[in-house]
Deep mutational scan, measured.
Amino acid sequence: MAEQVALSRTQVCGILREELFQGDAFHQSDTHIFIIMGASGDLAKKKIYPTIWWLFRDGLLPENTFIVGYARSRLTVADIRKQSEPFFKATPEEKLKLEDFFARNSYVAGQYDDAASYQRLNSHMNALHLGSQANRLFYLALPPTVYEAVTKNIHESCMSQIGWNRIIVEKPFGRDLQSSDRLSNHISSLFREDQIYRIDHYLGKEMVQNLMVLRFANRIFGPIWNRDNIACVILTFKEPFGTEGRGGYFDEFGIIRDVMQNHLLQMLCLVAMEKPASTNSDDVRDEKVKVLKCISEVQANNVVLGQYVGNPDGEGEATKGYLDDPTVPRGSTTATFAAVVLYVENERWDGVPFILRCGKALNERKAEVRLQFHDVAGDIFHQQCKRNELVIRVQPNEAVYTKMMTKKPGMFFNPEESELDLTYGNRYKNVKLPDAYERLILDVFCGSQMHFVRSDELREAWRIFTPLLHQIELEKPKPIPYIYGSRGPTEADELMKRVGFQYEGTYKWVNP
């Protein structure tokens, strides 16, 4: 592979701008107003304001973009700056750019259920340069409990009458099928589907988006991507930290609602779906819905739930269990780990287990898709061969690698495990991989909904998990304890083995 010439960040961002501006969906010269509902909250200060700053800094926003914060707290732009700027990672050389960014910011205080507050917000936006005809993007960085009041008031008082209007809704989209349907029906009564952007930030990850290209742009994968060759698929999300004093919020939802029903299920769809007619948003989402419709409700015998306990040999936070978090209700049975087996009941995947695993306070930070292939028929190497695996590593250190057998150097035919490896950090030294939120917010500006969740996708996802969630809430089974920093409950490994996964433990990928 030829040595790549190092590029400056300015040059890299210039390439990104060229890609972005050559499309006809990006209205570079139009006025846009980006409204952050819930501007005083954690999500706004840690993710949304920093993301908008990065896009502005790199010249990736339309030229005439204004940012308006809205929340109940009586704040000023200076207050917003004070709480969000520490997350910007701005350099001293960017000081003038930073001043320009905050000059485009404003803030309006108001209630979430008060019509007069929204009329005041609308008047404020109209007073901005060309504000009355601007395109408006409303980001709901809010708890779902206020979605209905907020969307109703936005629709009645704050819509642009000339430009387009788009609304970005953060997960969780309800707690179960019934609450999700209620919320979807409410929002759909106010906005068209092409105006609604239900954001799952995992769909903005580079390697998640790469799944489609790997599958449908490489001839070698087509013939082997089926039940005849693939023994099982494992989708993993692991965090090495616990709730760390923020367990009160987590306890309301648990690990299945927080990660599995959305992030992991979306990745499953991209692995299992048929080739779409095109890369058009609805063509892709149509195929994802077909996959979900082929999955039956989760069966309790295919589920393992766990909850982390303190590690007596650990240090600091590792010595504390979930129930030691003062914000967690006493005696909570909320799971911090889950392993679930699903089956896609169609011709391509009949009988292939899709194993979804996620948890907190585990032994490493990792998100990946792992396809394990069947054993080689007619073994001539005296059971020395391990199964081939194709691994798409989402985070950290984005990579695609194939675990395969090669001859060990020497005189004899002794096979050993090795890999074919594409590590993004080595291959793409001159490429700026956008943060997931950067990519998705740019998608909203461009009107691309491919990486957002459609209402029928959402409904099918909740259909699969709601009976299990209701059973857990009714019966309150005690989750299996696992030690902070471990791989999780051993019962999860036993479940995976029972459905056909072979864990060798003899080879570990190392970032080159």
Rank of each mutant, 00 (worst) to 15 (best):
A2E: 05
T10Y: 08
G14S: 15
G14L: 10
G23Y: 04
G23A: 09
F26N: 15
H27T: 06
Q28T: 09
H32Y: 15
H32D: 08
I36C: 06
A44E: 00
K45I: 10
I48R: 00
Y49W: 10
P50S: 07
P50W: 03
I52D: 01
W54A: 13
L55T: 12
E63N: 06
F66K: 13
I67L: 09
G69V: 01
R72C: 02
R72F: 00
S73A: 12
S73K: 09
S73V: 03
L75I: 13
S84N: 07
P86A: 15
P86H: 10
K89D: 12
A90G: 11
F101S: 00
Y107P: 01
A115C: 11
S117Q: 05
S117F: 04
Y118F: 14
Q119I: 06
L121E: 00
H124I: 15
M125C: 11
M125D: 00
N126K: 11
H129S: 12
H129F: 13
L130E: 10
Q133E: 09
Y139D: 05
V146Y: 02
V150H: 00
N153R: 13
N153T: 12
H155K: 15
E156D: 14
C158V: 07
I162Y: 09
N165W: 04
F173M: 09
G174R: 01
D176R: 03
Q178K: 12
R192K: 15
E193T: 02
D194F: 09
L203W: 02
G204I: 02
M207D: 01
N210H: 01
V213P: 04
F216W: 05
A217P: 03
A217I: 05
R219H: 06
R219A: 07
F221L: 14
G222Y: 06
I224A: 05
I224S: 10
I224M: 08
W225Y: 09
R227A: 07
N229R: 00
N229S: 15
N229F: 06
A231V: 07
C232I: 03
I234D: 06
T236C: 07
F237L: 11
K238N: 03
E239R: 00
E244R: 13
R246D: 01
R246M: 03
G247V: 10
F250M: 07
D251I: 03
D251N: 12
G254K: 01
G254C: 08
I255G: 04
I255A: 08
I255D: 01
